[in-house]
Computed example of a mutant assay.
Amino acid sequence: MNDFFRLPFFFDEDKLVKDLEKCLSLNWTDHFNQRDYNGDWKSISLRSISGNITDANAHPGAEYKDTALLQQCSYFAEVIESINCEKEAIRLLSLTPGSIIKTHVDQELGYSDGYFRLHIPIQTNPDVDFIVNSNDLRMKPGECWYANFSLPHSVANRGTINRIHLVIDCKRNNWSDEVFAESGYCFDLEKQMQSKKQDPETMAKMITELERMDTDTARQLIDQLRSSAV
């Protein structure tokens, strides 16, 4: 259950779309990590390291600034304000029909790392496959989802319209602990997983199994396991 779940919030789809419309004619930037996708995966920032809308970089622990665009999107600002913790990168991410985000992992984006990423779908369709750790998440407009993106994940838009999400990176705090507990997050399981991470014998076994797989995703996970042991 700790891999992903829907949070107990639901936002107004019409208001989300109205703010999205203010952004569609602006300069959206190709996602910087082009090896991770095929097709068109673009972003525009509401909060970024430089404060510019074209700055899509997201690094846990960096300093972030609201962009001028956020001031024009009052409902986005209301949604963001309702998430009662410190915010890092905040972006709109658009994936065009026929585009695929390849299976990959993101460093330090599990809740136990102290950071977490939320997805709020604004525009989507039933033919979007959002896969996290081999599970297909069915996200609907206005919902708010957490997933542990340090696990293997991918997205394929097999529909006819762009899939556009509001994506909010946050720092864990007491408020988020309470909300996650309400949503079904198991803190005992988190402790167990943390202790396994720190067990050198268990980690060595995991790395051996991943080396046998000999895939790009397996190699990324090996790097992640080794960096967490430093």
Rank of each mutant, 00 (worst) to 15 (best):
V179E: 12
T54A: 05
M203G: 07
Q220T: 10
R212H: 02
V79M: 05
S74H: 03
F149K: 15
I44C: 01
H59F: 10
D214R: 12
I90L: 02
E201V: 14
L7I: 15
F9L: 05
N84C: 00
V167Y: 04
S176R: 14
D169G: 10
E201M: 04
V167P: 06
E211K: 14
S74P: 01
G142M: 11
D106K: 13
S43F: 00
S183R: 08
Q123P: 06
L70R: 09
Q220A: 15
V79Q: 06
P200Y: 00
D36Q: 00
D199C: 13
Q72P: 14
P152R: 09
L221R: 14
T215D: 07
A229N: 14
K205G: 11
D113K: 11
D3T: 08
E81C: 04
E86W: 07
L225D: 00
D30C: 10
I131T: 11
L189E: 13
Q107P: 15
K15N: 09
H59R: 09
D216F: 13
G39Q: 01
F4L: 14
F4E: 09
D40V: 06
A229V: 14
T208N: 12
T208W: 02
F116H: 04
Q123C: 08
V17R: 12
I120C: 15
W41S: 00
Y37M: 02
R138S: 10
K191W: 00
E143D: 14
L16C: 12
D3W: 04
E13D: 05
L109F: 08
V79I: 14
D14F: 03
D214W: 06
K191F: 02
L7C: 15
L92E: 07
T160K: 13
D113E: 12
N57W: 03
I83P: 10
G39D: 00
V167W: 04
S50C: 08
E78K: 10
M193S: 12
V230F: 01
G114M: 06
N33I: 15
K15Q: 05
G98D: 01
H153F: 01
I49M: 04
I161V: 15
T208S: 13
F116Q: 06
I161M: 08
I49K: 03
K205R: 09
S227T: 11
E88V: 05
M1Y: 03
K22D: 07
N125Y: 00
L70T: 02
W28N: 12
D106C: 10
E201R: 08
Q72V: 10
V128I: 15
Y185K: 09
N135E: 15
T54L: 03
H31P: 02
Q220K: 15
E143M: 13
I161A: 12
Q194E: 09
L109S: 11
T103D: 04
K15D: 06
I222H: 05
N133D: 07
G39A: 01
K171T: 06
V132W: 07
I120T: 15
I49V: 05
I207R: 04
R172S: 14
A68S: 09
